[in-house]
């Protein structure tokens, strides 16, 4: 009875919240913000295309056998810097919250995915020779971060993604899958909590370039 009342109370609270949310018409500031973000995203897409086309032009101009050494170094640096889209074999790892129904007394927190879980899967992939990684289509680089915000994850403080979390990684598919599925490994410990994990070897997948540009404001090259 008391429980039912609490549930009713929760429902009322939720209803009230929605009512206030609908009633509060977005004022000009919010509209301006939504609009600006939208415009800037379009601008970013345009700039990314421009940068890619310029890089291609430069590649054509410097495509010379006498520069093979520089070209090789450039390829390695570009992979780590995430400036271009990459293709190759690898794995696709899908993570989803537990489907198990909770029983009274259980801590539901243990059955939902946390940023730490995703971090550990990513770390395992790197340890197993993962060469390029994306999370829900967002390329991850040296300075990438993931943080839980409510039921979502914020990537690099910019992109908000919700489960299922799909990690794509280029590398040796057998080594990557083997490391993830190792007994007592990261997949084992996640499935223990009912987190749904699937690891699929993929013959060819594509990882997008990093969105935007990595800019250094504080760090300067050491002379």
């Amino acid at each position: 009875m008391a429980l039912a009342a609490v549930i009713l109370g929760l429902a009322l609270g939720l209803q009230f919240r929605y009512a206030t949310r609908v009633a509060a018409s977005p004022d000009s500031q919010a509209a301006w913000l939504v609009n600006s973000v939208d415009q800037m995203q379009q601008e970013r897409t345009r700039l990314e295309a421009q940068v890619n086309s310029l890089r291609r032009q430069l590649d054509d101009l410097t495509n010379d056998t006498r520069m093979a050494g520089v070209q090789h170094d450039l390829e390695v640096a570009r992979i780590e810097a995430g400036v271009e889209a990459l293709t190759g074999p690898g794995v696709t790892v899908t993570l989803n919250d537990s489907a198990q129904p909770f029983t009274v007394g259980q801590n539901p927190n243990l059955y939902v995915l946390h940023d730490v879980d995703v971090l550990e899967v990513l770390n395992e992939i790197k340890a197993a020779g993962g060469e390029a990684i994306a999370l829900n289509g967002h390329r991850l680089l040296a300075g990438s971060s993931i943080r839980c915000i409510g039921p979502a994850i914020l990537i690099d403080q910019t992109a908000r993604v919700t489960p299922p979390y799909v990690i794509t990684a280029i590398g040796n598919p057998d080594t990557l899958a083997g490391a993830l599925n190792m007994r007592g490994g990261v997949v084992d410990s996640l499935t223990f909590w009912g987190i749904r994990v699937s690891v699929q070897k993929t013959a060819q997948l594509t990882i997008p370039a990093y969105q935007g540009a990595e800019t250094f404001t504080y760090a300067k090259p050491e002379q």
């Binding site: 973000v37 800037m40 421009q50 969105q211 540009a213």
Partner: peptide
């Protein structure tokens, strides 16, 4: 972030 990213992309271009 977009302000920063777009400025970075412009510098890169």
């Amino acid at each position: 972030n977009l302000t920063k990213e777009n400025a970075g992309l412009e510098a890169e271009a």
